[in-house]
Amino acid sequence: MRQAGMTAMSTETSNETRLREDICRFGRSLFERGLTPGSSGNISVRLDGGGWLVTPTNASLGFLDPAKLSRLDEQGRLVSGDAPTKEVPLHTALYDTRGSARAIVHLHSTHSVALSMLPEIDPRAALPPLTAYYLMKCGATALVPYYRPGDPAVADAIKGLAGKYSSVLLANHGPVVAGDTLEAAVFATEELEETAKLYLLLRGMNPRYLSPEQVADLVKVFGVTLPQHGHGH
């Protein structure tokens, strides 16, 4: 019995070590491609044994140290590592309302931030159905109003979405995307950024979006989940 318990503990430790390395690896990739400058952006991952890992405050995603990542307990209190990002309330609110979320990526990526500042953006669907992969990876993207970075009130705005969105734009700030794995969250964030770029390139050119029938086909074949009115624009 004791050996079984020790094996479970060693597996848990091994998984945490791997997740720490993954956070640093993906963070560096995002930083090196200019998707979040300076010390902006943050990443968190839920741990199987309870609590979660998150990137520290004022840390560049390009130069993270696995040993210095902030480990928080289930109440969001610091257990070990450096002081966590001030965006902890943002991450906590998304985890609390979206039960399937295992990882969250928040960036200050240029095209997504630009999109969040446009006057015509529908808060229920910040982007129209431009591509199949946008819908497959992001679903629909909500836009929430501007809040000062780190403002606990942003948590209420996220909770107001009732877990219907895995992809959220913070006005004049940047995207926040949840996934069932860290890799999924990163890939969805990248897809959101590329789709925002496409939208800006095509703005005012009357592009051809996916039709309701094409969207319905993606929903049926790939199990895409869209909030009500989430795929119109």
Rank of each mutant, 00 (worst) to 15 (best):
L53D: 02
Y199N: 03
L169M: 02
A184Q: 10
S70A: 12
L130T: 08
S80N: 07
A93N: 04
L35H: 11
S109D: 05
E12N: 12
V168P: 01
S211A: 05
G179Q: 07
L198V: 11
S211V: 09
C138K: 03
P149V: 02
P227D: 12
S80V: 12
Q75W: 13
G81W: 04
L72T: 04
A142I: 01
A83W: 08
Y147R: 09
F222Y: 10
A4S: 11
A114Y: 08
Y209C: 11
E191T: 15
P227V: 00
P152T: 05
G27T: 04
I121W: 00
N42H: 03
D73G: 12
T92W: 09
Q228S: 05
V113Y: 00
P119A: 10
S60T: 02
D180Y: 00
H173V: 01
L226M: 15
R124P: 08
W52E: 13
D65R: 15
T85V: 04
S167C: 05
V54I: 15
L202Y: 13
N172K: 14
P56H: 13
H106N: 04
L72H: 03
K68R: 14
Y209K: 04
P66L: 01
L202R: 07
T195G: 06
A103G: 04
H233N: 05
I23H: 00
G41L: 03
E194G: 07
K197S: 06
L143G: 07
A162Y: 08
T13G: 06
D65S: 13
K197N: 10
T36A: 00
V177I: 15
P149H: 14
D122S: 02
G38N: 05
S39V: 15
Q3A: 14
G5T: 07
S80M: 06
P119F: 03
N172T: 12
G27Q: 02
E193M: 06
S39W: 12
L198S: 06
L19R: 11
E12L: 10
V88T: 07
E191V: 11
E21M: 08
H229N: 12
Q228Y: 10
M1Q: 15
L61R: 00
L35Y: 08
F187V: 10
L161H: 04
D122R: 15
V224R: 01
L19H: 09
L69C: 11
A178H: 04
C138G: 14
H233T: 11
M1L: 11
S211Y: 05
P152I: 05
A196M: 02
L47W: 12
L69A: 03
H173R: 02
E120D: 10
L115E: 04
E213T: 06
F63E: 13
P129C: 13
G49N: 10
G38A: 10
P119E: 08
A188D: 03
S70F: 02
P207F: 06
T110H: 11
R148C: 09
K220N: 13
E190C: 06
I104S: 00
L30I: 15
L135Y: 08
G81R: 02
H106I: 09
G174D: 01
P207K: 15
R25F: 13
D151M: 03
R102F: 07
S100R: 15
V219F: 07
S44V: 03
H231Q: 08
G49L: 09
D22P: 03
P227N: 01
T92K: 13
A126N: 07
K86F: 13
L61M: 02
G49H: 15
T85F: 01
V88D: 12
T141H: 04
K164G: 02
G139W: 11
P149W: 11
P145H: 09
D65N: 13
I121T: 14
